[in-house]
């Protein structure tokens, strides 16, 4: 009888240990929508996530071994690049768009400002091959990794195969990116009824729901769609956005709606990084939205905010910061 109890306890401990091990890699917060990423085709394991993390921080992915993913996606800014309006790459070349933040990617159905990438697994191919970013060929990355000292062993650990393939390389980078879940903001705590907004924040939240929430939909703070938010075209870039991908005039000047999570730390804002401060963004929505045939349906009536309301709205936006994400040691450079 005693033995039976011990066995039952041991089994329980073992099961909960397994449960914890799998749970820690990816946790979908309660009451969030279904994830888009099909985890059954690329089940997360600790070895694969760790391999992906190593690759994310390794400049070996670029042509001259100088630029890593983290060069334009640094953790302390929610995995974007705060010093530059446009992303920059090898040999100080400058790209044409602001590097996006990387958070909650398991819920996204397309990637890049124009949605040109259709799946998280193949997302890394974009920056790896772009001449103004990493300027490298995926075939050559695989070759360099295969010839390196550490990677064949790490791929063997992760995939039980030391022969490195493009598929395994990309899937491991996906695994790391999938673990980047941001769900511990003050806003989230309020929704979980663990804390309360201040009066100012609550007022800001109401203004947000009225004026911003239809595109920056909770809880991801993006509807994952493409919208024209009335920005004037920058004549040095002439970026038509989504239309480049679909070839459809109706998509002219539409860009993917970015999340507002960690907005405090992910400046500059917009696809071309034209606004440095949140106040510039609010000023745009209240006074400089340009009418055009593709302007978002949600911006047809002008947004009106008093200066006090702008302060309240900003106070709410600051509740979307997640320090536990920005400083999570699991996401940082691994030695």
């Amino acid at each position: 009888m005693k033995y039976r109890i011990i066995i039952v306890i041991l089994v329980c401990i073992l099961l909960s240990a397994f449960h914890m091990a799998t749970e820690q890699l990816f946790v979908a917060p309660e009451n969030w929508p279904e994830t888009t990423y099909d985890f059954s085709k690329n089940p997360l394991t600790l070895q694969k996530v760790e391999l992906g993390r190593k690759l994310f921080y390794d400049p070996i992915l670029s042509k001259n071994n100088s630029i890593s993913c983290a060069s334009c996606h640094s953790q302390y800014s929610a995995f974007t690049h705060v010093d530059h309006d446009l992303s920059h790459g090898i040999e100080d070349r400058i790209g044409t768009r602001n590097s996006p933040t990387l958070m909650n990617l398991a819920w996204h159905k397309s990637f890049m400002w124009d949605g040109a990438i259709n799946h998280l697994d193949v997302q890394a191919l974009g920056p790896i091959s772009h001449p103004d970013e990493m300027g490298e060929k995926i075939e050559n990355v695989v070759l360099k990794l295969q010839q390196s000292k550490k990677y064949p062993a790490l791929f063997y650990k992760a995939f039980k195969d030391s022969l490195i393939t493009g598929e395994h390389l990309l899937k491991s980078i996906s695994q790391f990116m999938l673990t980047l879940v941001c769900s511990n903001t003050k806003y989230d705590s309020v929704m979980r009824k663990q804390t309360q907004f201040t009066t100012q924040e609550r007022n800001g939240y109401m203004l947000f729901q009225k004026n911003c929430g239809s595109c920056h939909t909770e809880p991801l703070f993006t509807n994952l769609e493409f919208e024209n938010n009335g920005l004037a075209v920058d004549p040095t870039l002439n970026d038509s956005g989504r239309m480049k991908v679909t070839g459809n005039k109706k998509d002219s000047l539409k860009f993917k709606v970015p999340t507002l999570r960690n907005i405090e730390f992910s400046y500059p804002y917009m696809h071309d990084g034209r606004f440095k401060r949140l106040s510039d963004v609010l000023k745009h929505y209240t006074s400089s939205v340009l009418q055009s045939p593709t302007l978002s349906a949600h911006l047809q009536t002008p947004v009106v905010l008093s200066s006090n309301e702008k302060v309240d709205l900003t106070a709410f936006l600051l509740t979307l910061s997640d320090k536990s994400f920005l400083f999570n040691p699991k996401y940082s450079f691994s030695k």
Binding site: A116, H119, I128, S129, T165, G166
Partner: peptide
């Protein structure tokens, strides 16, 4: 189908 085969578009999936 591996993207290293040179038959996958990087910049537009």
């Amino acid at each position: 189908l591996d993207p290293t085969k040179g038959m996958y578009w990087a910049w537009q999936s």
